[in-house]
Amino acid sequence: MEITVTVNGTAETRDVEPRLLLVHFLRDVLGLTGTHVGCDTTGCGACTVLLDGAPIKSCTLLAVQADGRAVTTVEGLIENGQLHPIQEAFKEEHGLQCGFCTPGMMLVAKALIESNPDPSEEEVRWAISGNVCRCTGYTNIVKACRRAAAQIRQAEVAS
């Protein structure tokens, strides 16, 4: 079945089997391996992407369900060769250890900051509660999300 999914701003048209999961469409068909497969059972959030701006688990959505919709993966965070403020903040705050959960964490942070520009620690923890960091590095992940929010607010004031 032919589908067109706008991935990181580019319309991608491919012929896929209906049973293909979105995460495999991204990784195996488009070669975007920043989206990870962790538990593969809707538990861990490593496969998190944004679907029309909302974070979802791409191991639990068929690619055909995303036909005509917009998907953002971690590869879509970078802008004009510059790291996104969320990526900078994860680097600055050491918001990662092994890095496996990091793409999902950053995409959840992006959706959170768009709807809530100044999230409290509790709000960040609530937002990432569907994403597991098995290194248990939550303290720095939360700091990174809040630093990113602060930097995005400052950039908006400056512009």
Partner: peptide, 9 residues
């Protein structure tokens, strides 16, 4: 119900 990502779908 479930977690925030599951609740989006």
């Amino acid at each position: 119900i479930a977690d925030p990502l599951v609740r989006n779908l």
